[in-house]
């Protein structure tokens, strides 16, 4: 099991490293300060982006995969601070279980918010 969680840790690390800084810069700083027009500042533009299946898939990956990285790091950090229990079965269930739960919630939220218009897809095809 260790190698699986480590593998997910590595994947999450790559995703967070490559994608996150740009999102934080644009959606967290430039957008709110009005430095540039950003999709999520207005309902209409954000929803039309969220309708897009590729955007949906991207957001699911962007949000859920890094949590496997975070869970792993934070668990080890707790161990580093001398809490030996964070190595045990229950701590692993707790930390990695949380990232699994967040993955499920993310899929559900991204899927149900501005649902993909199947009819429109049909027209495109």
């Amino acid at each position: 099991m260790h190698m699986f969680w480590w593998f997910m840790f590595a994947q999450g690390g790559v995703i967070a490293a490559l994608l996150l800084p740009a999102h934080i810069l644009v959606q967290g700083i430039l957008g709110p300060l009005g430095g540039m027009p950003v999709a999520d500042r207005h309902y209409e533009t954000w929803v039309s982006a969220l309708h897009n299946p590729i955007v949906k898939l991207y957001l699911i990956v962007l949000i859920s995969v890094p949590f496997f990285h975070f869970a792993h790091r934070l668990r080890y950090l707790v161990v580093d601070f001398g809490v030996h229990e964070a190595k045990g079965m229950w701590a692993q269930v707790g930390f990695y279980g949380t990232s699994v739960a967040i993955t499920i919630v993310t899929i559900w939220i991204v899927w149900t918010t501005a649902p993909i218009d199947i009819g429109a897809l049909h027209l495109l095809g």
Partner: peptide
Amino acid sequence: SALPLAIWLLLLLGEIRSAANGPAGYHPLG
């Protein structure tokens, strides 16, 4: 660094969720 990044992503997820509330209920992060 995992902690602030995790919180930031959860806020982003909340923003996406609030887009389900319709135009009046949508609150962009700010």
